[in-house]
Design a binder for these strands. Structure first.
Lengths: 337, 337
DNA sequence: AAAATGTGGGCAATCGTTTGCGGAAAATAC
DNA sequence: GTATTTTCCGCAAACGATTGCCCACATTTT
């Protein structure tokens, strides 16, 4: 049942002209007479001719495909980012190859490899939490495949990136807590690989400094983003002689887990302890005890911005131009419930 | 800065042999002597040769890419399904092109068109809520691109599909409510396009019949899945003289919206009214008032099953065989909290 | 009438890889 | 020493579309 799709050759054969004439006719090339042009277009329409994209991809060395590698799709942050990415891609008549690393470096590498083989025109990535090096991304330079990082951006130079300014809003968040009377504020941070450029922590420090509060190192703990990791980290905070009364937490998902656990421990949320977080994912609207405030990171806008940057890079590449490294920083916003 | 990647021709030139020999050597073709084979492989390794996939795609008429079209990625149901799809695809050395229809028919059509142009080897789809016909999917037959529907399956014959048996668990869910003493049970259903094969309603009816309860048609309302649509539908139920004491609801997201709204209306959840739902998405763990029970639809398994089916179809296609239409039905399970 | 210009379209190469067929050299059989 | 079989490899076509170059004919210019 191998249906044969019509090709340029087929049209040429039927019309007794050459394939090149057909190609040019379909592209409205000026050197083709009106009569033949019409004849070609008519037959093409009749046969329902459509160019074989794989042939074109091959010839043009472009696939009109971008690769997207991110930790997971479960988090609403990432699925919102995809919306932005997909919208821009579709506008450019591009389509998106997707892969989830599930925070596993090996899988991330495999995905990058696979996307390279598929000759994507560019890659957008948010690195996994176990990504300790970015060789696999840097390799893409050898293949002339531009890479744009977003949100989870590795701490390296000579990369393109789009991210949110979390420093300012971290200062703001902690100041807000201080003004509400909190003096011992814990910081529940993410895994070390995601903290290389630790704007959250820097903001946390700065706010303490501004208000002449000493920082107690024991108030700073880490989670590997798993439920268990978060429990352990929270335990460490709760076992302190002087417990924190508020916690700044890596993101809303960690916070939900932390709150869940704190309640199991018979703590009263917003009385014994309260939380401020990052991401401001919509799902927190439905929960019983959401974080008191959360830093909106505009995932859709980040996605749009990253994709637009990528397309600029692709254009420059096509034109054979060199592009300077761009690191775009969007603003974030503390949303108080 | 156009780096030239090494090709088979390049290797052939350097070794003073023909390109065909290089190709065969790299594929361990038996008719190539050990000596030349080693030499080729050695040089290939040195040059860091990697086959140009676009050329292979073109030649083999395969792209090792599957297209995935679904309503959105926001719902954890779909993002979980993707995990299954991606895992199976990766095992087969395939990669996934993704597109969200956002429940818009035109966009769904555009995505299908785009995927066809990219010559995907097959398509997995969950239709949008505004999909009133499936011509765009049926067209794929002309291009020998198999299509497998999952979860949201159109009510048509001559299609491949994977879905959950919601009938049995709907009966079970409603019976469970009846046994808890509920006599007036509302049914908040989805938009008509998604109800063509209405297993939920059939189950609802059957349970009533089994327990000799009359069905009041006014207890059956529809939402278009938007927050507003859900509010209106719920209003219709709450305005009845004899309100329902329990509601069977299309899915967890609708349910969360409904519960949210019911609370605004000063109803006490699980006392004035309670909810049973579908999907059993993990996020309900965190919410204040989750549905009392929810039908687990095993999105990961559906994804796996759909992808495996698709690969069987792709194999048959490659072998030139005809494949019978398969409609796989997985079981679902009522999860009581 | 010869030359310059313009018009319409074909030839052949190209992209990188695969594959059917054929053929020379080497090994074996008689 | 000739005939037959193996072993090993090259030739060339093919996939479908694009494009630089050339050419034949018609039209206009001197």
């Amino acid at each position: 049942m191998e249906k044969k799709l019509p090709t340029i050759k087929e049209i040429a054969r039927r019309l007794n002209i050459s394939a090149s004439t057909v190609s040019r006719a379909l592209h409205d090339h000026p050197s083709i007479g009106l009569r033949t042009k019409m004849a070609v277009k008519k037959l093409a329409a009749e046969l329902n001719y459509e160019p074989n994209q794989t042939a074109i991809f091959f010839k043009q060395r472009k696939t009109f495909t971008i690769g997207l590698v991110l930790p997971n799709l479960r988090e609403e942050f990432f699925s919102a980012a995809i919306n932005g990415i997909e919208d821009v891609a579709l506008d450019h008549n591009y389509i998106v190859l997707i892969g989830q690393s599930h925070d596993d470096l090996a899988r991330e590498q495999k995905l990058i490899e696979s996307m390279k083989n598929h000759r994507v025109d560019g890659i957008i990535a948010s690195i996994s939490s176990s990504t300790t090096h970015i060789e696999h991304f840097e390799q893409m330079k050898n293949y002339d495949i531009p890479v744009v990082f977003f949100d989870r951006v590795p701490d390296a130079k000579d990369i393109h990136s789009v991210s949110c300014n979390l420093y300012d809003s971290s200062v703001e968040a902690v100041e807000w807590l201080i003004k509400k009377g909190h003096k011992r504020i814990g910081y529940l941070q993410g895994p070390p690989t995601l903290n290389m450029k630790n704007e959250r922590l820097d903001g946390y420090m700065e706010a303490h400094k501004k208000h002449k509060l000493a920082v107690d190192e024991s108030l700073i703990v880490s989670t590997d983003l798993t439920v268990d990791g978060t429990k352990k980290a929270l335990d460490a905070l709760l076992q302190l002689k002087k417990r924190p009364t508020a916690i700044l937490s890596f993101n809303d998902y960690v916070t939900l887990d932390a709150i869940h656990y704190a309640r199991q421990k018979k703590l009263t949320i917003n009385k014994d302890i309260c939380f401020v977080s990052y991401a401001n994912v919509p799902v927190t609207q439905y929960v019983e005890y959401p974080p008191l405030a959360s830093v909106e990171q505009f995932p859709y806008d980040q996605g749009v911005s990253a994709t637009e940057l990528l397309f600029r890079l692709i254009e420059k590449k096509t034109a054979g131009q060199e592009a300077p490294y761009e690191n775009i920083v969007l603003k974030s916003e503390l949303i108080i419930r």
